[in-house]
Write a protein that binds this DNA or RNA. Sequence first.
DNA 1: AAGAGGCCCTGATAGC
DNA 2: TGCTATCAGGGCCTCT
Length: 287
Amino acid sequence: MPELPEVEIVKQSLDKKIRFKKIKRIIVRNRNLRSKIPKNFEIFLKNKNIKKISRFSKYIILNFYDDSFCIIHLGMSGTIHLVKNYKKKKFTNLSFYQSPILPSKHNHIEIQFQNFSIIYNDPRRFGFFELIKNKKKLSKRFSHLGPEPFSKLFNLNYVQHYLKSKKKYIKSFLLDQKFVSGIGNIYASEILFLCKINPQKKAQNLNQDECKKIIYFSKLVLKKAIRLGGSSIRDFKNVSGKNGLFQNEFKVYQREHLKCLKYDCQGKIKKKIISKRSTFFCNKCQN
DNA sequence: AAGAGGCCCTGATAGC
DNA sequence: TGCTATCAGGGCCTCT
C-alpha cells in the first residue's frame, strides 16, 4: 500500500507514540520477510532508546540514541498496529494505518514497550527490517536512491539531464527509485494526468515545459496526499476515521472506462500495463 | 549503461 | 461449490 505519503503518515503516528521510549522486548514470529531477519535482531534492539522516527523515500527509520538505526520497509502489504500490552490484549482504535482490527495470521514482528506494543503485519512478506550500525552506513544504504520529489536536487537541470537520452516511457521513470524516490504506481498515474503527459511518452522526448510539470505536480500530489492522510484502497469494513482520504481524489487510478474528470474533456480513462504495472490515463487530454 | 524480464509471497476476486 | 487464472500499492536480481 505504501508509497511516500502513506509511509509518511505511519512515520508521523509512530513518532508521536514511540519517540523517547525504550524497547523492552522483541518477538519475531516469522524471520522470512523479504530479507531474512538476522540472528542478532532481538539482542540488537533490546533496551534501545528511541531518539526519533524519520523517513526517507518509502523507508521508516528508527533513530536510536546510540546512533544506530533500524529501517522498516512495508513492501506491498505491510502495516503497523498499536496494541495495549496489559490484561487481555485489547486493540485500540489507534491503528496507524488501515484497519483497527488487527489481523493475527501475519503478525511477524512485535516490538514491546512499557505499556504497549507495535506489531508488524505483512501477508505478502515483501517488507523487511534492517539494522544499521551508524550514520555512515545509513547514508550508504540509501545512496542508490534518487532524490525525493520535495528535494531541491529534484530540479529542472537534474530531470532534463537524467531523461535526456532515455528511451523508456516516462511512467517507468516515475516508478524508478534511482531517478526519483518515493513515488509508486498510484501516484505515478495521478501525476502524469495532472501534467497532461501520456505515460507512454518516451522520456527523452519530454520538452522543458513537461519536465517542469513533472517536478511541480510530483510535489503537489504527494503533499496533498500527505495532508489527506494518504490513500486507503481495498478498504475493509472496519476502518476507523484514521484512514486516508486521498483515494477520493483519484483522477485516473482505478477509473478505467469512466469519463475524464478534466472539466472540458470528453475523454475516457484507459488502462494499460506499463512496466508490469497497471497504468491509468485519459485517451484525450493526455495525448 | 540501459532496458527487459523474472522472481519473491499471499489473498481477493472473476470466470468457468 | 470448487477449481484456475489474474491481479495487487515494491524492489531486487540476472541476462542481453
